[in-house]
Amino acid sequence: MGSWTPHKLKLGVSGCPRNCAEATCKDIGVVCVDSGYQISIGGAAGMDVRETELLVQVATEAEVIDVIKAVTQLYRENARYLDRIYKWMNKVGLDWIKERVVDDLAERTALVARFEVSQDIYRHDPWAEHAAKQAQSYRPVADLALEAAE
């Protein structure tokens, strides 16, 4: 949320292989299956209709989040302005993306870290700060209900 990308970035997550969220025609799609999570990228359903191509299947939710962050950051850093992921993928190739996001764990970690940098400004919550300091001022100033009625 808040990070700039070369073009719009649509994500879909389906909780089961029936794929009701139509995750396989989004820029990044996740389909949950018995053995884990299938992450596929490069779909579209507008001017061009394209099915996503499988990037990787992972076992845990944490890995899903990391892979998506890494793909997004790789896309942010390398794609030309106005290239959706499928256009960018046609230029660099899915294998090139896999090498960096799937095979090279150090690269994945670095990409995730750089994505987090782009996010930390937007995740600033002024109300959390305010609440940490001033929550008391929104509570009842006194509780006379605790006093025994005479």
Binding site: P140, V141, A142, A145, A149
Partner: peptide, 22 residues
Amino acid sequence: DIAALSDIPRRGARVVKTHLGC
């Protein structure tokens, strides 16, 4: 004594819980 005057902001209010309601 319920509170200090400064516990309530100007043009504001605070609530005191009682048996009769707030």
